[in-house]
């Protein structure tokens, strides 16, 4: 699994740096998912260091970190560059939104006044076909239906996340959204269940999704 990110337009990032008056920054780049998406990693760090310096923003330190989203890793890594951090106006992170918030949490303990600016947009949890081809196939709905739907997720492969598809927008197996260029998720489910001889599962009337525990903040805490 990879958290898929895409780069924000440079102007948007520079605007944010300006908004927080950042003239000297630390750059934290994610060496895992963002590296795979070419929005972080060593290459991202080098690119951004160059771009920042061109704009007259000093880079006090730059690190590539394995798991920016892991609070423990960030605690360890930030400790190593504490002198530079003390001296910087903030952090620019080349990571996903989880990484950014992990940084905010860890940094906040010692430097609550320092902003963290994110250079990427977080798209989705992605299934990798190959580098540069990532697909949203799970939205973490919290009540997995795959055992009922032949192992194909209706929440992400159906443009409307329907529980009982296909809808009238399906034409020859394709979805009305995106000009009939993408498969209709419910036809994929139908075909898969048909191949398995389990159309009885397709025929089942499913209740609407139960949002009672999932329409607000979620956490998994078991110890």
């Amino acid at each position: 699994m990879v958290v898929i990110t895409t780069a924000k337009p440079d102007e948007e990032v520079f605007e944010a740096l300006e908004r927080y008056d950042i003239k000297k920054t630390v750059v934290v780049s994610c060496g895992t998912c963002a590296a795979l998406c070419q929005t972080g990693g060593t290459e991202g760090l080098e690119n951004w260091t160059k771009k920042l310096e061109e704009k007259g923003i000093q880079v006090a330190a730059g690190i590539v970190s394995d798991d920016v989203c892991d609070n423990r890793v960030m605690m360890k890594d930030l400790r190593k560059i504490d002198d530079e951090l003390k001296d910087a106006d903030g952090i620019l992170t080349l990571s996903c939104g989880l990484g950014e918030q992990s940084l905010v949490k860890v940094l906040g303990r010692k430097y609550p006044e320092k902003p963290v600016i994110i250079a990427n947009n977080t798209e989705f949890m992605g299934m990798t076909e190959r580098i540069g081809r990532f697909y949203m196939r799970c939205r973490g709905c919290g009540d997995c239906l795959l055992n009922d739907t032949g192992g194909i997720c209706p929440i992400t492969t159906c443009a409307k996340s329907l529980m009982n598809g296909p809808c009238g927008g399906m034409v020859e197996g394709m979805c009305e959204v995106g000009d009939y260029e993408r498969d209709c998720g419910w036809v994929l489910i139908y075909k898969r269940l048909e191949e398995m001889g389990r159309l009885d599962l397709f025929e089942k009337l499913r209740d609407s999704f139960d949002w009672s525990e999932r329409g607000h903040q979620r956490e998994v805490v078991f110890r």
Partner: peptide, 22 residues
């Protein structure tokens, strides 16, 4: 079900689809 919001003239609207036609 209704045609997806992305097809219409307010594509910025949230597509709800909490229920489905069944």
């Amino acid at each position: 079900t209704g045609d997806h919001t992305a097809l219409g003239d307010m594509p910025e609207s949230k597509p709800v689809f909490d229920l489905d036609s069944s």
